Amino acid sequence: MDTYKLILNGKTLKGETTTEAVDAATAEKVFKHYANEHGVHGHWTYDPETKTFTSTE
């Protein structure tokens, strides 16, 4: 398992979190669920070199 990072740049919520996942697709599902639960619906990007997802509203 690898550690993946999420950076949230929402209108009402900003911050970072991490998750352990078997691959990027699994981490993306976890992070999108997390963002949706916190009302963040933004544009998603992923940097495979740093294993970092960013959601920007």
Rank of each mutant, 00 (worst) to 15 (best):
M1A: 08
M1I: 10
M1V: 12
M1T: 12
D2V: 12
D2A: 13
D2C: 14
D2N: 14
T3W: 08
Y4H: 02
Y4T: 02
Y4K: 01
K5I: 11
K5V: 10
K5F: 10
L6E: 02
L6N: 02
I7C: 06
L8Y: 11
N9M: 10
G10E: 03
K11C: 15
K11L: 15
K11N: 13
T12I: 11
T12S: 11
T12V: 11
L13V: 14
L13A: 10
L13C: 15
K14G: 06
K14L: 07
G15K: 14
G15I: 15
E16Y: 11
E16C: 15
T17L: 15
T17V: 15
T18P: 01
T18Y: 14
T18E: 09
T19C: 15
T19M: 12
T19K: 03
E20C: 13
E20Y: 12
E20W: 12
E20D: 11
A21C: 07
V22P: 15
V22G: 09
D23M: 02
D23G: 03
D23F: 02
D23Q: 03
A24D: 04
A24K: 12
A24W: 13
A24F: 12
A25C: 13
A25E: 13
A25T: 10
T26Q: 13
A27Y: 00
A27E: 00
E28M: 13
E28A: 09
K29P: 02
K29Y: 07
K29H: 11
K29I: 13
K29T: 10
V30S: 06
V30Q: 09
V30I: 15
F31S: 00
F31D: 01
F31E: 01
F31N: 00
K32M: 11
K32I: 09
H33V: 12
H33S: 12
H33P: 02
H33Q: 15
Y34T: 03
Y34V: 04
Y34M: 05
Y34G: 01
A35P: 01
A35C: 03
A35H: 01
A35M: 09
A35Q: 03
N36H: 15
N36M: 14
E37R: 09
E37F: 11
H38T: 05
H38G: 04
H38R: 13
H38V: 14
H38D: 02
H38Y: 10
G39Y: 05
V40Q: 04
H41V: 12
H41L: 10
H41D: 13
H41G: 08
G42A: 05
G42Q: 03
H43G: 07
H43R: 10
W44Q: 02
W44I: 06
W44K: 00
Y46N: 00
D47Y: 05
P48M: 07
P48E: 12
P48F: 07
P48D: 09
P48H: 08
P48S: 10
P48G: 07
E49M: 11
E49G: 11
E49V: 11
E49P: 08
E49C: 10
T50W: 05
T50R: 05
T50F: 06
K51I: 01
K51R: 13
K51P: 00
K51L: 10
T52E: 04
T52S: 04
T52V: 07
F53G: 00
F53D: 00
F53K: 00
T54W: 10
T54Q: 06
T54K: 05
T54P: 00
S55K: 03
S55M: 15
T56L: 07
T56K: 06
E57Q: 06
E57S: 05
E57G: 04
